[in-house]
C-alpha cells in the first residue's frame, strides 16, 4: 500500500515526532508508515484520517497487489 503521509505531514509543518504524539504512536512507527515499511491497522488508519481531516482513500492508495485477483472489476 502506498500513502501520501509524508507529503501531508510536511505540508502542515509537523515533525514525525509531533504527528506520532497526535496519533499516540512512536516516531519510529510514523517513519515506518511514511517509508512504506508498515501498513497501519484499520483503527490506526482511521486515526490518521481523523488527525488530517481527510478520507482514508485520499491518504492511502492500494498497490496492484492489494486489489482482488480480478483487478477490482465487478
Amino acid at each position: 500500500m502506498k500513502n501520501h503521509l509524508r507529503q501531508i505531514r510536511e505540508s502542515r509543518g509537523w515533525t514525525q515526532g509531533a504527528l506520532a504524539d497526535l496519533l499516540g504512536v512512536s516516531r519510529q512507527t510514523v517513519n515506518a508508515l511514511e517509508t512504506g515499511k508498515y501498513d497501519p491497522s484499520l483503527p490506526l488508519a482511521f486515526r490518521i484520517s481523523h488527525v488530517f481531516e481527510q478520507p482514508i482513500e485520499s491518504i492511502f492508495l492500494p498497490s496492484p497487489e492489494d486489489l482482488p485477483p480480478n483487478g477490482g472489476r465487478r
Binding site: E10, G13, T15, Q16, G17, A18, A20, D21, G24, V25, S26, R27, Q28, V30, N31
Partner: peptide
Amino acid sequence: MGKAHQREQAQGDRAVT
C-alpha cells in the same frame, strides 16, 4: 525542514521508554 528536526523524538516515546 531538516532531517534531524524530522527525526525529533516524540514526547510519548520518551514517556514510554
